[in-house]
Amino acid sequence: MGEPTEIHAADAERAERGARDGSDPGTDHTARTPGGATRVAQTPTAALRGRLREQRRTPRRPRLLFELALIGISYWLYSLVRNAVPEQAAIAQKHSSWVWDLEHTLGIAVERSINHGVNSVTWLIVGMNYYYATLHFIITIGVLVWLYRSHPGRYAATRTVLFITTGIALVGFYFFPLAPPRLMTDGGFIDTVKVHDTWGSMASGAGAHVSNQFAAMPSMHIGWSMWCGLTIFFLARRTWVRVLGLAYPLVTLSVIVSTANHFWLDAVGGEICLLVGFLAARVIYHNWVYRLPRRPDDPAEQALTVPVSWDTKVSA
């Protein structure tokens, strides 16, 4: 018994349309991978989530040239923005007086005594001046290189912590200009760079006119040194290296106070920025940065946590 003419006509029309479009009528819009598994068409958002999920499961370090360019451009932008903040001297002096009074209230205002005491030991304070001017660059870059070479699976996430921390600091520089202790009008602190004619500081001497001298809150010497110290402590294998990692931010704290470049509370601000950086990276990578796998090609280190809502497995 024949089928109605209308049905044959509709089938013929579908077949003709399928031939024109290069598709087979009657099949769904799926594709098969070389292994034979069905791959369902995804929206751009789902595809992005899939790529991010895959990167978390098999994290890989960025290409070297890309990373060098990223770090160079990021530091250039950091310096540009930091130094472009208006140097509001009156407001910065007011803020420094407020911080100094608060520290007196808290009973921790001992920076001036430390500054004068260490300044009396010439070799020590001169060494601290050079330490302050140079070491935060050398150590930070060294830790980045070590991470890139020895911990490729953790590099991008740990570097992200540093970038976020620094970005938050720029907000602090803009909205809370603060005169460092050595520049307080009636603070009685000693500017050790000027007194000992030490080379290297952009905050005193000949370089002062090209640097924002009121970008003291938060202290990135502390933020960066603590980032380095924690990274070394959690990832280094030798005990003495881990101890040095923990000692580094403590020595840096003594240096920034002795040279009158920061208050104690500036250091607290730097630590808060770093904490936010770690928490932000935890949200991005869904794991603490030091718990990510060391190398992406190690099967024993692939057990990363991925949110259930991001699991796009399709049942057969």
Rank of each mutant, 00 (worst) to 15 (best):
D11E: 14
R238S: 04
V121R: 05
P299K: 01
N287S: 12
R291F: 13
L80T: 12
R295N: 13
T252R: 00
A156Y: 11
P293S: 07
T305Y: 15
L124T: 08
Y148M: 06
V40E: 13
M217F: 15
K194C: 05
Q88K: 05
L292A: 07
H95Q: 03
R291E: 14
G229F: 02
G167A: 15
E16K: 09
G153A: 07
M217A: 09
W264N: 04
G22Y: 12
R39V: 13
H95C: 00
G22H: 10
S258I: 04
L178T: 12
G127L: 11
D311Y: 01
L124F: 15
V110M: 07
A300N: 10
G127S: 11
G107K: 02
L246Q: 01
W98D: 08
T158Q: 11
G223A: 15
I272Y: 08
T45E: 10
G188Y: 10
N83W: 07
V81H: 02
K194M: 12
G127P: 08
T33E: 14
T122N: 13
G187H: 11
H286P: 02
L279H: 02
M226P: 00
A215C: 10
H196F: 15
E67N: 10
T140Y: 08
L68D: 05
H29W: 12
S201N: 03
L265K: 02
R182Q: 02
V283H: 04
V145A: 15
P180V: 00
I256L: 04
R159S: 12
H221W: 08
V251R: 00
R154Q: 13
T105Y: 11
L70E: 13
V85S: 06
P293E: 05
R182C: 00
A215F: 08
L246G: 05
W224K: 00
E3W: 12
G153N: 06
S150M: 08
W227K: 01
Y174F: 14
Y148P: 06
S309V: 12
R294F: 03
G172H: 03
M220N: 08
V308Y: 12
G205D: 08
V145I: 15
F176E: 02
P299R: 01
N115H: 07
A9P: 01
G18N: 09
R237A: 04
A281Q: 08
W310L: 10
I125L: 11
I138T: 14
L230Y: 05
A109M: 04
A247R: 00
Q213L: 06
